[in-house]
Design a binder for these strands. Structure first.
Lengths: 353, 353
DNA sequence: CAACTTTTGGCAACCGCTTGCCGCAACGAT
DNA sequence: ATCGTTGCGGCAAGCGGTTGCCAAAAGTTG
């Protein structure tokens, strides 16, 4: 910028050239170069309106010249805020969580926050541990599909700001992906295709969403006079699909609604191996619409969820909790809509058993 | 839903938006409880042999009782090390990088380090920027498939410890996934199936591995007297697969070696759409063996790579650089072996054009 | 038992930045 | 002119640890 501000008598410190090239420039170096106190530099950089425009520009120039980057460590130490948020997922291997992570990453970056990624390995102990160990290094937490008990969750939420994803809770803000309501759609879909004997393939018993899905499934299918089965629990990985597929076949069901796509895809593979045709012999409906659900064989009918968006919403809920806007109370619940995406893994019920 | 608005207790709660009845215990609290000086506590916790066993136990007890967790911020401030490593990936959306991240995450956690995940969005500017902005907050960097120029890389490597993945460099330790050598296997495979006209489907021009793959492809296919084509560049996403497939078909090639699986899977989808059979009409070979390569339709023949392991190795190379063991020089290059995994997307060359 | 070496623990100076408080100067209103 | 106000910048006290240096305590040795 062409600034026409000669500013005479500025106490320039010509001698203060570049300091030791080894050491990274500190706020002091900037202050020295700009001829002001460190406190002024600090303010110029964080609350621009607090200092005179001229001074600020001078400081900014000095900072730019020195290539100054404030130490987030030091900032955190004195301000008490780390500008970092920890995201805890049960299994970093699962594509579902990758979508979450992608969403949180995106939104956090936009807000100038750093994401600390933690894999809790499906263990509530690790989750608690991380929550505890990192309380100093993160301003808040996002718990994706927390494995914590209600009591644990309540306790933790009293200590630190957090938002849960797919885990209803009265004690913390939550974003839930409304898969249950889409299960009704799925059921209708199956019913209209003539299926009468259907089976729910269960995921981890500690998963809240698994319980929620099963509950709706049972209620609604019974209501429709369908014969329901329930198999599981299975680990939500493709490798568990074989066992799940075999169990499903044994129930004699003509269609399955599966806890998630990972498991469903695994089942697809196993069924193909066994020569059981999908959807001619059995229909499969997954859940989440993860990466791969559209190109597996056959392409999977599934309950599509805005997973990435859920991550983004969780972040904004957390941030509004961390930096409350005086007037507005922060949202406590966000429900992400879902819908059934019909592909090729569902079809008419076979004519006879 | 029942919206429980957080009750703002005292109107004088500025920074901490959370009710903080009890301050977090500091090293001072521990010292007080144990009846020693803070310096002793510090030492008892970090260099146990420096303090008497009896005192140490007393301190540990006190720390445990108070549930003390040292502030990594403060530790970092005074010790100069952050115990954090930044992992930069060009596209967090790409499953290939998921695997890298999984590997780094795993290994970093094992070493007590925190992973800072950054998506550079395929942009060298963002990459440089992150490298610059985070130099204070990370002890080192892992650059996966860096988009930096050689010059930039050299410059950066002079400033901070880093390890590159899939990016040869003389200035930094590197782990390369040896896809090129497996390309020879792929070529042999195709040749033995009778393919004579083959095509390389190119990825991002800024990608070092893309260039490396193309180079080997060209040299070796020519050497074998095959007719080679080259199409691209294409963005390495399934959505680019359509264009790639169409272009590939136009070349008249009977087989393609594709920059990566993502693109290959996209091509598979497009070819199916167009009624072009794989592998009867055209064979496709991908690269990386990402999640999904085994269950797409048809399952993809691909160059399998130990991606996750590459991430792990990168971390250990970086850590040995950060905490050098006096005697041993740290490794500068790790080559990860790859091999061709033959599935169903390759078959005999069609009898006639 | 004195002289000396080795442990062991405390003191205090930082690390880099934020922030409450204060003072000074310029400005506006009386 | 006088007396607030307000705007702006400096001072200095931390934030929670780490660490070099030193002295007291304990252990060795002749």
């Amino acid at each position: 910028m062409a600034t026409v501000t000669p500013e005479p008598g500025a106490k320039k410190v010509p001698a203060a050239g570049h300091p030791n090239p080894e050491r990274m420039p500190t706020i002091r170096d900037v202050a020295l170069l700009a001829g002001v106190a460190t406190s002024t530099v600090s303010r110029a950089l964080s609350k621009p309106e607090r200092v005179n425009r001229h001074t600020r520009e001078r400081i900014e120039a000095a900072a730019a010249e020195l290539n100054y980057v404030p130490s987030s460590q030091a900032q955190g130490l004195s301000s008490g805020r780390t500008k970092a948020v920890a995201v805890l997922v049960p299994d970093i291997t699962n594509p579902f969580y990758f979508d979450i992570i992608r969403g949180t990453q995106h939104q956090l970056k936009a807000a100038g926050y750093t994401q600390l990624l933690v894999d809790t390995e499906e263990s509530s102990e690790m989750e608690l541990d991380a929550l505890h160990k990192m309380r100093r290094s993160a301003d808040g937490f996002i718990l994706a599909a927390s494995r914590l008990t209600d009591a644990q969750l309540v306790e933790v939420s009293g200590t630190q700001p957090l938002v849960t994803i797919n885990r209803a809770s009265t004690s913390t803000p939550t974003v839930v992906i409304d898969t249950p309501s889409a299960i009704i759609q799925a059921l209708e879909h199956l019913a209209s295709l003539g299926h009468q004997r259907i089976c729910y393939v269960s995921g981890p018993p500690t998963s809240w969403s698994n319980r929620a899905r099963w509950k709706v499934f049972e209620e609604e299918s019974t209501k429709r006079g369908m014969e329901t089965h329930h198999i599981g629990p299975f680990t939500p990985k493709t490798t568990s699909g074989a066992a799940a597929a075999d169990a499903a076949v044994r129930t004699g069901a003509t269609a399955c609604i599966v806890f998630n796509d990972l498991l469903a895809i695994g089942m697809l593979q196993r069924l193909r191996e066994r020569g059981i045709r999908v959807p001619e012999d059995i229909s499969i409906i997954g859940s989440d619409d993860i990466f791969g659900a559209d190109f597996c064989n056959p392409p999977l009918t599934t309950i599509a969820s805005p997973i990435e968006q859920a991550g983004r919403v969780a972040v904004s809920m957390l941030l509004s909790q961390l930096n409350p806007i005086p007037g507005r109370a922060s949202r406590q619940l966000a429900v992400m809509p879902t819908h059934l995406t019909i592909r090729a893994s569902t079809g008419p019920a076979p004519a006879h058993t």
